[in-house]
Amino acid sequence: MSEIRSRKKFNAGEFTLGVHSWLTYIFLYLPMAILVIFSFNKARINAVWTGFTFEWYKVLFNDTALAGALVNSLIVAFISTAIATVIGTLTAIAMYRYKFPGKGLFDSVLYMPIIVPDIVMGISLLSFYVFIRFTLGLVSIIIAHVAFNISFVALVVRARLHGYNKTLDEAAMDLGANPFQTFMKVTLPLILPGVVSAALIAFTLSFDDYLITSFVAGIGSTTLPIKVYSMMKFGVTPEINALSTLILFISMILILISQRLGA
């Protein structure tokens, strides 16, 4: 028996890998596919397909509370990304260029927000705001997002700087460029792809952050993830499916752009 089968030998490694990738596809992409499909479903319940419609997208665009949350999320994401990208990039360059006492310690502290669990960050930020009597609102959210995004930006830009030839900066200065001109005309254009992909990652992280935001958001500063979560208490509606589909679509475009630039 076994001799007959041995024409195609059983390979445990190949088999595991195959099963693994199929499971990945099923559990990761199948739910997404279902979500997208049901966002166009006429039925109110996510169970049976009853026909195609754009109805839920119309409902979505007429929902002012949801629109308000979306605007809040965009404001927070844009401003916190801009600030975090500038500070994170400059930090990465400073860390790359200069040696200073306590650099190792600073390095570890810089990447803390990536390692520390979100819940700990949320609680500590909230206690801090309460301690300094800072009113919770969009500003407190933005500051919190800047705080964790700086680390991610610095990490991504630093990876890009790793292969950077410092002699190019010296060549610019040798030709008469002061440090600022050197940065604008030589360093920045060469690391720009890294900076842009860092900004895209920062934007995504800010846009979909739920946990930290839920601690530091105040009344009237509901962001999209918080709003969606509160809507979910009444079950997954086709409206949420439509919203998720849109976000999925935009995220995919951003990821494609960042991959293009990273290459």
């Binding site: 190019l168 010296e170 060549a171 200065m173 040798d174 030709l175 460029a177 002061n178 030589v186």
Partner: peptide, 18 residues
Amino acid sequence: PPYRRNVNTVFQNYALFP
């Protein structure tokens, strides 16, 4: 600083701006 010195350098590996 180097950008105020009246000298120019031809670098060992050229250091042309790519």
